[in-house]
Design a protein around this nucleic acid. Structure first.
Length: 242
DNA sequence: AAGGATTACAACCGCAGAGGA
DNA sequence: TTCCTCTGCGGTTGTAATCCT
């Protein structure tokens, strides 16, 4: 379609944010193509949805994760793998994107540290509390980062499914990595945490919008609405994300 | 103080599934 | 049944902010 050529990309401006917030309050968090159209922003519906979910939603927490959140992410990832949206539902106010970013940064850093230390002292693994063969971990990490660095077309899941080193799956390897970074998470503690989680599991209230939203209004009637009605701008400093 | 390296975050892309026409 | 649109997800990339030398 020709319109796609004119679509705006890149960072959102404050003006765009205000417009989007305004129209989402009017029409609800559905029909993003429609919202994109009526806002007059040269953005795709997809882009609007992402901006709203990851940044503008009033229930979002901004800023760095707390140690508790970090531990929870590690735990849940060890349990579910890269199911970011699922993990995010257990952390109210955090988005899948945020958790994904955190995990990548965190794990890349840790893997690099480990790689370094294994190069410096290959026998040091004997002092580790990890039950996993450290060579297997290092090999897996190396393969993983090779893949990243060389832009291999093998998908992550494909890789994880494929790689089994010394009887360990990629998931197990990630788990070991994660747990080794959180020594307090011994078996008993983990069991206890999981029990708590089972009890407290809930649908995130953040996303729980009712069906009574007004987005059924047709295009012709749009101009009847005041764009500024019910406008609430999330509490953050523009540009810093905090 | 400058500039390169690293980290954190925002945004885009492609794909798949659901649901309606 | 098939096609189309919308939505959601996970992977990836780009860039601003911060750190380090």
């Amino acid at each position: 379609m020709a319109a796609s050529e004119e679509m705006r990309k890149g960072p959102w401006t404050e003006q765009e944010d205000m417009q989007l917030v305004c129209y989402v309050h009017l029409f609800g968090e559905r029909r993003w193509d429609f919202i994109a159209k009526v806002t007059g922003l040269n953005r795709t519906g997809k882009s609007c949805r992402l901006r709203w979910l990851n940044y503008l939603h009033p229930g979002l927490k901004h800023g760095r994760m707390t140690p508790q959140e970090e531990q929870l992410v590690v735990e849940l990832h060890s349990r579910w793998g890269n199911r970011w949206s699922r993990i995010a539902r257990r952390l109210p106010g955090r988005t899948d994107n945020e958790i994904k970013n955190y995990w990548r940064t965190h794990m890349r850093k840790k893997a690099q540290e480990r790689q370094k230390s294994s190069q410096l002292s290959p026998s040091s693994s004997s002092s580790s509390s990890s039950s996993l063969n450290s060579i297997a971990v290092a090999e897996a990490e190396n393969k993983w980062f090779e893949q990243i660095n060389h832009g291999s077309s093998i998908s992550t899941s494909g890789f994880e499914a494929e790689v089994e080193l010394n009887g360990y799956s990629m998931d197990q390897i990630w788990n070991e990595l994660a747990i080794s970074e959180n020594p307090w998470l011994n078996f008993e503690a983990r069991k206890e945490k999981f029990n708590e989680l089972e009890i407290t599991e809930m649908a995130s209230p953040l996303w729980d919008y009712s069906e009574s939203q007004m987005w059924k209004v047709d295009d012709e009637n749009l101009k009847l609405f005041s764009p500024m009605a019910g406008l609430v701008i999330p509490n953050y400093q523009y540009g810093t994300g905090i």
